[in-house]
């Protein structure tokens, strides 16, 4: 266990991230092909599923193109700037630190994810990820335009605590990769101890569900314990219906990628007052829906 205390160079940490990221992507593509074959065998293949999957990868590319410049400049410069000027200490770069960093980054992920669900601005981008009526690996790559923005603010505190930016990037990436692998219907339930502690495909299916008892549950990245502790956990015990309400019923990548912001934009445009506009940005999306229902009820009475 001696190696756990070995000091790593920052470039080694960065190298590991590149390495893992590269092979992980190849593995997920392989897994996706496997899933398609499985779907084919079950005779459930439809043109709509194929279109939806292609759209998922197009949103990935769009997100990368939009986010690429942004991530390089904003994240890197931002994190290093914080690390050099505002970190309370600089923790040694070791495997032990990395393990600690992953646990904290996993909590950061939980809060960031919860934030994206309970505030209108976050939901405008995150709704893209949830809008697929399917649940396979390609859905994990279905990104919204600003999905890269919010993690910055939730992970910057880690840099302030003294984790080297590359360690934070690696931890973030590992949480993300773990999360990605959960997007499958092929795995039903894992052994009980695993389901108890870890996030699993079963738990994450619940997160993607439109069943009312499943809404806004299971935000976890790697460990499901955060949801259990913070009261946002639900067990998968009835059949999951995937997607969002209202359904977008489209595989048009432009429509899918921007639909959250188009909707938020029109809500903002038609808003009765500035305080209403502000609430649209910070309140949960359900609030806007309730207001609209009330307005309709009033108009008809």
């Amino acid at each position: 266990m001696e190696f756990l205390n070995q000091t790593l160079t920052d470039l080694e940490v960065y190298g590991w991230e590149e390495f893992i990221g590269y092979w992980f992507f190849i593995a997920t593509v392989a897994l996706f092909i496997f899933e398609l074959v499985a779907v084919g065998f079950m005779k459930k293949m439809t043109w709509n599923l194929i279109g939806d999957s292609i759209t998922n990868f197009i949103t990935l590319v769009s997100y990368r193109v939009l986010g690429g410049v942004f991530i390089a400049l904003f994240y890197l410069a931002g994190f290093f700037w914080i690390y050099e000027n505002f970190s309370i200490t600089q923790l040694p770069i070791t495997w032990v630190s990395l393990i600690g960093c992953i646990i904290i980054a996993d909590m950061a992920y939980y809060w960031e994810h919860r934030f994206m669900h309970v505030c209108g601005l976050g939901w405008a981008t995150h709704t893209v990820h949830h809008s697929s009526p399917y649940f396979n690996i390609s859905v994990a790559y279905r990104f919204g335009p600003l999905d890269g923005l919010f993690p910055f603010f939730f992970h910057a505190p880690l840099v302030m605590l003294g984790f080297h930016p590359f360690m934070v990037f690696l931890a973030e990436a590992l949480v993300q990769f773990y999360q990605t692998a959960l997007h499958t219907e092929l795995v039903k339930k894992l052994p009980r101890p695993v389901e108890a502690v870890m996030n699993t495909p079963s738990h994450h299916r619940v997160h993607h569900a439109t069943n009312s008892k499943y809404i806004d549950k299971n935000y976890a990245g790697i460990f499901i314990i955060w949801d259990k502790m913070f009261g946002t956990f639900a067990e998968e015990d009835e059949k999951v219906r995937f997607g969002v309400y209202p359904r977008i019923n489209s595989v048009n990548p432009v429509k899918v990628f921007f639909h959250g912001f188009v909707k938020l934009g029109s809500q903002l445009w038609n808003a009765p007052s500035w305080s209403y506009r502000f609430k649209l940005l910070v309140k949960p999306p359900i609030w806007a829906w309730e207001q609209e229902q009330k307005a309709k009820a009033q108009a008809s009475s």
């Binding site: 205390n5 070995q6 000091t7 790593l8 160079t9 920052d10 470039l11 080694e12 390089a72 400049l73 890197l76 410069a77 290093f80 200490t89 923790l91 040694p92 070791t94 032990v96 630190s97 600690g100 646990i103 904290i104 909590m107 605590l161 003294g162």
Partner: peptide, 29 residues
């Protein structure tokens, strides 16, 4: 977070060798 952080502040990290120090570049984008 605080508990983990404290643990890491007081961890027994092996001091970096000259080689490890040298490998640290100051990165910019």
């Amino acid at each position: 977070t605080g508990v983990i952080w404290l643990g890491l502040v007081f961890q027994k990290a092996n001091p970096p060798t000259d080689f490890e120090k040298y490998s640290t570049l100051e990165m910019d984008p």
